[in-house]
Every structure is written in structure tokens, then in C-alpha cells.
Design a protein around this nucleic acid. Structure first.
Lengths: 221, 221
DNA sequence: TCTCTATGTGACCAGTTGGTCATATCAAAT
DNA sequence: ATTTGATATGACCAACTGGTCACATAGAGA
């Protein structure tokens, strides 16, 4: 980080820092890394171009600082959800996690936007590392939920944990995308669903995760 | 389309057309729409900048033409898989579809790349329409599989079809992404998996789709 | 008041972009 | 040999990019 932010920036009055962070976050979330314009950031935060280079080393530096900021916000949420649902059963925890995700995105659309952008931007700096950090975080989360659930006998004992982690990660991640990227969601129409419809979809999803699709005799342990 | 390609392009010798399509496909798949450089396309296909504008109206025109070309290739595959598995049971069909997808991406990485790029490129022209077309295509496919499977009694009779479609779309799509975008795949390591490991993962995935996660008594119709 | 350091500034730079256009090339028809 | 219509070309343009730098400003300590 010390290679990225200059002390000058940290000495700045907090509201000025906030203005710059906000402007940069917006721009990166809107356009992605390579298309984001420093001129726009500078104009929106009301500072001079030169000043930007007194705060950060270069465009990459700005981006990494912003991403780091975003990550820290997400991390706080996940830890909190995990702890506050410690006592509940597996499926309730899963459901609450998903709903917490939906609420988070509604509250911090730009943070989610920057994540989506980086997802397929080959040119975002350190993309590989940044993405793996995020997904690993999610994977660890699910894995831990699964282990506890299995230990309590709420889940099939023979579940392959890594594949199951993959399934959960895929389903919840995609559900969030569907709820916030209309183009993504052909079937459910989540982007303009009301609270109650969203809840119904979540429950249908949980039911499928529980019982699967097959008719007839179920798995016997 | 007539607004997009000029007749001049279609009059060109086929190998010249192919060279240009190839160069454009590569560039768009590599960089995405806004970052793709016409200069690069021109250089790689060995034609003059001016010529490009005798073939297409503008950058958007080139992109839409290429995308259209890509879509037609995908469409052919899906139709073929659907027909050739007509007689099999639901889960076998699903499994074969997924494996066909993996094979397709291996054979046409650029076509898949262009799809991934457009996925989150807010600035790709007509992005909304293009994406919806693709996803709708997939959704229709799964929906049709599901209806047949349910009619044959292979699936729970009370399955909510749209949510189930969503589940299948999410899982298979993500599986394909994991198999081709390493950063995306923390848990399974599919990108460097051998044939046999990949097959095992597919079967584990199918098992989870069949039976779900829950222990104990299964759903009774 | 003068000095010194930290901070602020915007004209400026080279490089790249998508797009244009006057001109050149060429094949067929007359 | 000449005309004609389609096709090919690359120098050129305005707009923008990330990044620089000589200079202005301000505030604290002397």
C-alpha cells in the first residue's frame, strides 16, 4: 500500500479524501479499469490533475487503493453475517447470507459494480490475484458453513465438499447478479421484483438446493 | 444487417473475408468492445484502414457483424445437441449438454471469449439485447428439457420451472466459466484438470442436482 | 518579514483512438 | 485506347488518454 498511496493523500482532510474516493469508485464502477478516465475523476472531485499524482503513483495505484477500500467493506459484512447466524441451521444460514448479499448490493451498488467490471477485464492490474482473493473468500465461507452443517447431520454425509462449495458459490453469486444486472436474468425478472416475490424465489431456490430435482426414492446414507 | 455490412464486403473473395473476420474476432475477444483497436484489426488482416470503412459502417457495425457470426455458430451446436439426445433421460441429456459445452469452448475459445467480454462491458453496443438473446436461448433450452423430463416422470412434479431453469443455467454456465477462466475457479481447479477429473466433477455436479444437499427423508410428491 | 516545506495547479506532451477523403489501382466494357 | 465503376490506400484530423513539470499558493517558524 505504501507504494500506492502517498502520505500526502492520508494527510488530507477527511472530506476531501472521501470526495476523491467517491469519484474514483464511481468512475471505475461505471467504466472498468482501462476505460476509466482520470480526467473525469479529477473533474468530479474538483481537484487538479497534478494533485492526483501527488496522492497516488499512477492510474494503477488509484485503482488498487480503491479496490482495497471496497474489499474491506465486503469483508466486514461477511464476517458479521457469519457470526450473527452461528446458531442457526445450515439452510437458514444460507438463506440469510443470500438476503444479506442482496441488501448489501442495494446499499453499495458501486462496490458490486467494480467487482463485476474486474471480473472479465483482462487488463485490470493484478486481476488474477484480486479475483482469487474475492472468490476464495466466498469459497471459504461456504466451505465452513458446509462443514458445520454436515457435522450437525443436516446434510448428506457423502457430499463432496469442494463440488458442493462450487454449487453454492455459483448459485448465490448468480442470484445476486440476476438481481442487479437485468440483462443477465431472463427467467426470473428479479431486477424489478418486489420484496415478497424476491423472498419467494429465494425459498424456491433453497428448496431445490435441499432436495434436488429428481423424483422417486431419495438418496439413502 | 444491411445497415452494418456493405455489399462490398460480401463480394470479397472468401479467404479475404475470413482473414478479416478472424482478425476482428480475435481483437474483440481479447480486449472487449471499447478497448478493441481498429488499427490492430487492420494491421492483422493486412488491409488498409480505409478499406474497413468500405466494408462496414463503423466500429459498431464491425462488432455487430462479428457477434452475429459467433451467435450463429453457437446456435448450430445447441440445436444439434438437443436433437441428438432426444431419446435419453433428463439427467443424461443435461450431462451431455454440459460436456458438449466444454468441448465447444475448447474448440472455439474466441467465440466464448467475446461472450464473456460483452457480459460486463456496459459500453458494448446493444449489449442488453445481445445478452438477452444468448441467455434466452439457454433458458429456452433448459426449460424444454425440464418439461420433457417432468412429463416422463423423471422429475419432481412440483418443481417450479422458472426457478429450476435459473438453477440449471447458473450451474452449467458457471461450470463452463470455471473450466476456462482460471481466476474464476478457486475450488475445483478445472482449468488444468485432466479429462477424467473433469468427468468426475461433472458426475458429482449431476448427483447434487439430482438429490440436493439435505440429509434425511426426501421430498414426497 | 523572510524562508522553507508541503500542497495545489493546469498548460503541455507524446501516443492512441475512431473516422475521413483525395487519390490511386484495376478490371471490364466500349 | 478510353471510359467507367468499384475497390484500395494511407496520410491526415480532432478528440482523448495517462502522465509531467515549472510554477503558484499557503502556512508555520524564524
Amino acid at each position: 500500500m505504501s507504494q500506492i498511496v502517498r502520505p500526502t493523500f492520508l494527510n488530507l482532510p477527511e472530506d476531501k479524501q472521501a470526495r476523491i474516493i467517491e469519484a474514483a469508485l464511481t468512475e471505475f464502477a461505471d467504466k472498468g479499469y482501462p476505460q476509466a478516465s482520470l480526467n473525469t475523476i479529477v473533474a468530479r472531485s474538483g481537484i487538479a490533475k497534478g494533485s492526483l499524482y501527488q496522492y497516488f503513483t499512477d492510474k494503477t495505484g488509484i485503482f488498487l487503493y480503491i479496490f482495497d477500500f471496497a474489499i474491506s467493506v465486503v469483508r466486514r459484512l461477511l464476517v458479521q453475517v457469519k457470526e450473527s447466524t452461528q446458531e442457526e441451521d445450515f439452510f437458514t444460514r444460507l438463506e440469510k447470507s443470500l438476503l444479506a448479499g442482496v441488501a448489501f448490493i442495494k446499499e453499495h451498488p458501486k462496490i458490486y459494480g467494480i467487482y463485476l467490471k474486474i471480473l472479465f477485464d483482462q487488463q485490470a492490474p493484478q486481476r488474477q490475484e484480486l479475483l482469487q482473493a474475492v472468490r476464495r473468500f466466498a469459497a471459504d465461507y461456504f466451505h465452513s458453513l458446509l462443514r458445520q452443517g454436515r457435522a450437525r447431520g443436516e446434510l448428506r454425509q457423502d457430499l463432496p465438499l469442494t463440488t458442493t462449495t462450487f454449487v453454492l458459490d455459483a448459485l448465490l453469486d448468480r442470484f445476486l447478479q440476476a438481481a442487479s444486472v437485468p440483462a443477465f436474468d431472463v427467467s426470473l425478472g428479479l431486477d424489478q421484483a418486489g420484496e415478497e416475490e424476491l423472498l419467494r424465489r429465494v425459498q424456491e431456490l433453497m428448496d431445490i438446493i435441499r432436495h434436488g430435482l429428481a423424483a422417486g426414492k431419495k438418496y439413502e446414507p
